[in-house]
Nucleic acid binder design. Structure first.
Lengths: 147, 147
DNA sequence: CTTTTGCATGGGAATGATTCTAGTTTACAC
DNA sequence: GTGTAAACTAGAATCATTCCCATGCAAAAG
């Protein structure tokens, strides 16, 4: 259950930067962070880590299945901790908030489509972009900042 | 029906680079191209265009709804001509081939999910990544090149 | 058909995100 | 503890994309 054990299980040495990054991702209120976000959070805890390390570690975590990388609109990657349960995303283009949902019917239809193509699916992602309720109604929402 | 008219309708001057880029996208056999792909195709026709222009034009075309931009895995954007009919994508991570499909049931469920969140959806994208039949069976397929 | 006017272009520099390189440090097996 | 492979840091390098600005060209006006 400890982060240290999680890392070992993934075949990764339990180094300080890795432990810190993992705990930041786990503790994050907004749990979709860019590499830069993680780097800033590390600096705030007074940690001496290089941005290169953040990228390297996030990529290793992705390969190990500890985190999920998303390529949202705009080109930069965002990462979220992998809590086991697959879900899809709805992103507000005004405030940046990310909602998650899971729809078994959609998952099933995707599986069928892949099957009919003879495709072995490794991963799939479904993103919807639009304007959230708060921004529509009041021009702001819980996460007011734009981008 | 002419490209020139299409551009004017979109509020864009019918300049030579724009016409060329539009015709390349329309004629493309593999119709998911990166900006670099389009640039190379232009050079092959002997055209003197700057890469910056290609990016600028593709972005304008996207805004005008003439092309669709996709952010597949790997960071770079790919573009396809917008032929009106929405569809989703299945990408082979081995050979790079892109298959398209449309599933009304999935579309409908997405609509429902957005509605239940009070979300106005501008766009949505569904990508599945995996290994295509040809690569599984023979280690190669119609589009053998890797990436 | 020519002039006018302003948006469009080209190319190189700039930016932003991400990755590589070199030399140094650390985790962990013995 | 000690050795060794793996990991770390900082900064340089790379890649995709965008910016800047002097020049060019499309469309409107004459």
């Amino acid at each position: 259950m400890s982060d240290s054990a999680d890392l070992k299980k993934a075949g990764l040495k339990a180094t300080l930067p890795r432990l810190k990054i993992l705990s930041i991702l786990e503790a994050a209120k907004v749990h979709h962070m860019t590499a830069e976000d993680v780097y800033k959070a590390l600096l705030e805890t007074g940690e001496e880590v290089g941005l290169a390390t953040v990228y390297r570690v996030l990529t290793q975590f992705e390969a190990a299945g500890l985190v999920i990388r998303h390529n949202f609109e705009g080109g930069r990657s965002v990462f979220e901790i992998n809590q086991g349960s697959h879900h899809d995303h709805v992103v507000c283009v005004e405030c940046g908030e990310v909602f998650e949902f899971y729809d078994p019917a959609i998952e099933e239809r995707q599986r069928k489509v892949a099957e009919s193509l003879g495709f072995d699916v490794d991963s799939h992602s479904l993103y919807m972009y639009g304007v959230c309720l708060g921004m529509k109604r009041h021009g702001h929402c819980s996460k007011k900042e734009g981008r």
